[in-house]
Design a protein around this nucleic acid. Structure first.
Lengths: 167, 167
DNA sequence: GTTCAATCCTACCATCGCGGTCGGAGATCC
DNA sequence: GGATCTCCGACCGCGATGGTAGGATTGAAC
């Protein structure tokens, strides 16, 4: 598994905020509303949104009628920033700590075995592939995609579609 | 973390077999020798190599002087096969089970919330990026890379290399 | 100014997969 | 027969993940 549910829930939360941004301008959306709409645990979402706020991706207003809104427009938010805020560095492997100061990727096994880390090349390529895709994808794309998905699945699926009118 | 140590150890094991293939022709290499050379636990390697054998990537001969060798030449082995054998399907997310029979990627949250899975687009792109890089990389490249790394890290001390004594 | 709704923050906890071990049974060569 | 070596299944500690509990703080509405 590449990502944990932190990424899943966090991205989903960002998409929801992106929807709200388009719909209601500058009004803040409460976490409770998002949690109910997406069927996610509120308390857990609180911790996740804190990561996004610290990264400057969302802004918050406290108190009654408070909530969260995007700090930038969805088109200006790329997913590498989002994932980085949520998951920390995206590394293919534990030993793959990219040391920014030394700019050397060193593997713990490198010291043990006499030979260099044979897998380093592969992990670097994979990581590059992931980061590339993340950087290419904007939140706006995901928001649009969520509308299209909704339109595509709703009409032809009368069986299991629950309306989001919980509570 | 994208991959577990199964992938790390497994790839490393394949590289080692690739080295031996170039060096000694058709002689089988014992796991013990590889475990010692790479500083990896033998018992754990046994379970890992079993995955590679079941996938038809390595062949084994039992009994004394037995061991493992590559089923194909390093140039014919791409890393997507290797990783697939080791880790199972490379999925970005738990809910991302690509149903081969329905060929539909469905997310458990999709049923709950009225809307489609907003993150599906992102995960598909990321997975595509990973698989692309894996498929582009051959074992031969990693073997070559390991030689270059070895030469780079130990320029003037070829004797410190732990010889792979066949015990 | 009380109340209520919301963000914020810290601590806590259970489950589960990962990494690793152990013991033993079957091959095979000397 | 003994020495290796592959094979297989069971077992296990640990840490991260996912989730919960409780409360402090802020601010709008009444």
């Amino acid at each position: 598994m590449i990502f944990t549910t932190k990424a899943e829930y966090g991205v989903r939360l960002m998409v929801e905020l992106g929807r709200q941004a388009k719909a209601e301008g500058a009004v803040a959306t409460s976490l409770k509303a998002i949690a109910e709409a997406e069927g996610l645990p509120l308390a857990y979402l609180e911790r996740i949104v804190a990561l996004l706020r610290k990264a400057g991706l969302v802004e918050s207003t406290r108190g009654a009628h408070g909530g969260y809104r995007l700090a930038r427009t969805p088109g200006q938010i790329t997913m590498d920033d989002v994932i980085l805020a949520l998951e920390g560095a995206v590394a293919p492997m534990n030993c793959f700590v990219d040391d920014t100061d030394t700019s050397r990727v060193l593997c713990s096994h490198e010291a043990d075995s006499g030979r260099g880390c044979a897998t380093k090349l592969l992990w670097m390529r994979v990581q590059g592939g992931v980061m590339e895709k993340l950087a290419q994808t904007t939140l706006a794309e995901l928001v649009d995609f969520s509308y299209r998905e909704q339109a595509a699945t709703l009409p032809n699926d009368p069986t299991s579609r629950k309306p989001m009118t919980h509570a």
